[in-house]
Amino acid sequence: MTETTPTTPETVLDVQGLTVDIATPDGVVHAVRGIDLAVGRGEILGVVGESGCGKSTTIKGILGLLPPNATVGADKIELAGHGDLLRTPTKKMRHVRGRRIGFVAQNPFGSLNPIYSIERQFHELQKAHGTKVSKKESREIAHAMLDGVGIVNPDRVLDGFAHQLSGGMAQRVVIALATTLSPQLLIADEPTTGLDVTVQAQIMDLISGLVRSEQRSMLLVTHDLGVIAQYAQRVVVMLDGKVVEHGRVEDVMVDPQHEYTRKLISSVPKREELHDVIG
């Protein structure tokens, strides 16, 4: 299936044998059961699956964001230029997140602090990662970042608060924050779910542009096959905590090998089928 393995020049994130076990009152749930992922430089790797397949748990496991009742195991979670994330102490992981890995969550309003101005959130982010910047410098950086994510009037947004933003704007701000410290890897968990379709197209265009222009890498988790088909280069299909199929998007989405992938793709309404169902 992968006779033409895309020989990416450099692997930025290499995950092997990742498992997540979650202890619940009713016993241990094996949420992620041994998955391998590799994200190359300048590449968007899509992770797709339905709710409960473990895709969100996977990225939370990589980021070290799981609650204490979850146990993460892996042969390795290697981040280029840093080392093994699994053996990185919790305290240091805080610096990895933000500086080396930028995270974009599904709900932008959950990522923004409602009581700080947007400007202050840029400033806090830089302070938290030990960057010594004056308020003025911080604002200049923030201004440039917002400009870079297509916000027309950055000054207004910087002085405002999260609740004054529309969903699409808030997600742009989150993306700007996530890329401020120039992490080489971005991880996005359903970044456009809940946004309007026209806004989704704009946000995804923005994200893929950011990845391409700066030669960053991205792990993109979504349930939306359209987003994967249009923006990712390679895709991993997850079911019940395991990878059932992986490969280049052109291969997997056009000629799926696994039965589950076929079922997923066939449940997206296609143009040709128009009115066949209802007659």
Binding site: M204, G226, A229
Partner: peptide
């Protein structure tokens, strides 16, 4: 609206 649709077929490229 139509141009914002993302086809699940990577051969149909969208142009928003």
């Amino acid at each position: 609206l139509l141009s914002a649709r993302l086809s699940a077929d990577p051969r149909e490229k969208h142009a928003y």
